[in-house]
């Protein structure tokens, strides 16, 4: 999308039109509402499994570190959680490209990721 020239005191100055303002547009897969990113809440990497849920009696320091701090942090498709703050209030999962900002898929919070 190109910028649109506006009359201005400054030569070559321009303003962003509303549809050019860079931000994420997100569609909630549960209630179907479409909103910008301020209508949603980011919840970090999805599918991070808490070791205490699996074997609370024997958790190594390494497992606990991985759970709390180690992240995949890919450049490209990223599995992540979002909450539909101003719609249904439900959490859901999404696959978003961290380079292009494109949402490739959304799916339920308890579901396995779809193939993309």
């Amino acid at each position: 999308m190109g910028s649109v020239q506006r009359p201005s005191l400054l030569p070559n100055a321009y303003c962003l039109l509303p549809h050019e303002i860079p931000m994420l547009l997100i569609k909630c897969p549960i209630c179907g509402v479409v909103g910008d990113e301020t209508d949603f809440h980011y919840g970090g990497e999805a599918h991070v499994r808490r070791p205490a849920s699996d074997h609370p009696d024997r958790i190594s320091d390494g497992e606990q570190r991985d759970y709390l701090f180690m992240r995949k942090n890919p450049r490209g498709p990223h599995h992540e959680r979002w909450r539909c703050d101003r719609g249904c209030g439900k959490w859901f999962n999404a696959i978003r490209d961290t380079l292009t900002m494109e949402f490739l898929a959304t799916y339920g919070i308890r579901e396995e990721p779809p193939a993309i």
């Binding site: 931000m23 990113e37 809440h41 978003r96 961290t98």
Partner: peptide, 12 residues
């Protein structure tokens, strides 16, 4: 708030 490699942020 979200992971981003694009060197472009969002307006909010």
């Amino acid at each position: 708030p979200y992971n981003n490699y694009s060197q472009r942020g969002s307006f909010p």
